[in-house]
């Protein structure tokens, strides 16, 4: 029974990882941009949740507005900074976004202090439900259901809308899409905002469970890259499967040998890069 508990936890964690990684992977796929600041935006999402809840008293408002604010921040930074360096080699993307991540992290400490914060589970979702023979927190069930819905909306957006068609076509050849008369700069900015907004959303959703602290961005960035690399850079399904795999491994291992989980997932990433360079679900 304990294992079902851990598997449900792993599912929730995995879906959080999916939300973060899918943003990273879309950005890499379309913009060919390596965003080492992705985790920092996740952290900003978490802190916005804290402040918005403190300000308005409602988790729901923060869930609605928070991702939009993060997406807006991302849009502004894309327009002012990142679009200038797309043409440079990945090394420069990494250096600039590492700089941004450092600035965001230190700013968070200036604004919210160096010690982490806890965020209460919204009233409507407090308590537990009895599943079979054990009690499971309602909020965690909500988290799983909500992220599944978000995942489906995202899938619809990417597979069934004009925007999604452009993103997918642009991932194949950005030049082609711009030749079709599409404003590629706008498309890039929108995609960047969407991808980073998803990281912000993940930060808000995980805040009531894990709390927030200034260094959560760094931790999650490593995981997000593991997921993306294992799943295959630029692959939606890869981000989903990779996220769930990493989430489940971490959750199940957490009771047995927590450090072993990290060893396993980083080891798995190295193995995938060396043996299957395009990931388990990526295309060559």
């Amino acid at each position: 029974m304990l294992y079902i508990f851990q598997i449900l936890n792993g599912l929730g964690l995995g879906m959080i990882y999916f939300l973060i990684s899918v943003g990273l992977t879309i950005i890499f796929g379309l913009l060919n941009f390596v965003n080492f600041a992705h985790g920092a935006f996740f952290m900003v999402g978490g802190y916005l949740c804290y402040s918005l809840v403190a300000l308005t008293g409602s988790f729901w408002i923060s869930l609605l507005i928070g991702p939009l604010i993060v997406a807006f921040l991302a849009w502004v930074s894309e327009k002012t900074l990142f679009h200038r360096i797309y043409h440079l080699p990945h090394t420069f993307h990494i250096l600039v976004t590492v700089g941004i991540a450092l600035i965001l992290q230190e700013s968070a400490i200036i604004i919210w202090g160096p010690i982490g914060k806890n965020i209460a589970v919204p009233q409507e979702l407090q308590g537990v439900v009895t599943l079979w023979s054990f009690a499971y927190p309602v909020y965690r069930l909500f988290l799983i259901a909500f992220t599944i819905v978000i995942g489906m909306i995202l899938w619809f957006l990417l597979e069934r809308t004009r925007f999604g068609a452009l993103v997918r076509a642009g991932s194949e050849s950005a030049e082609m899409v711009s030749l079709l008369g599409v404003n590629i700069h706008r498309l890039f900015a929108q995609t960047f905002a969407l991808g980073v907004g998803l990281a912000g959303l993940a930060g808000i959703l995980s805040a009531p469970i894990r709390g927030v602290h200034p260094f959560m961005g760094v931790e999650v960035l490593g995981i997000a890259f593991v997921v993306v690399v294992i799943g295959g850079m630029g692959s939606f399904i890869g981000a989903l499967m990779g996220g769930l795999m990493v989430g489940l491994v971490q959750s199940v291992m957490s009771t047995v040998w927590p450090e072993g989980a990290s060893l396993m997932i980083y080891g798995a990433m190295a193995a995938v890069i060396l043996l299957r360079p395009y990931g388990l679900f990526g295309r060559a």
């Binding site: 700089g99 600035i103 230190e106």
Partner: peptide, 13 residues
């Protein structure tokens, strides 16, 4: 360290 982040970006740009 915020200065270092900024300096890093300025140097690359």
């Amino acid at each position: 360290q915020i200065l270092m982040g900024g300096a890093l970006i300025l140097v690359v740009l």
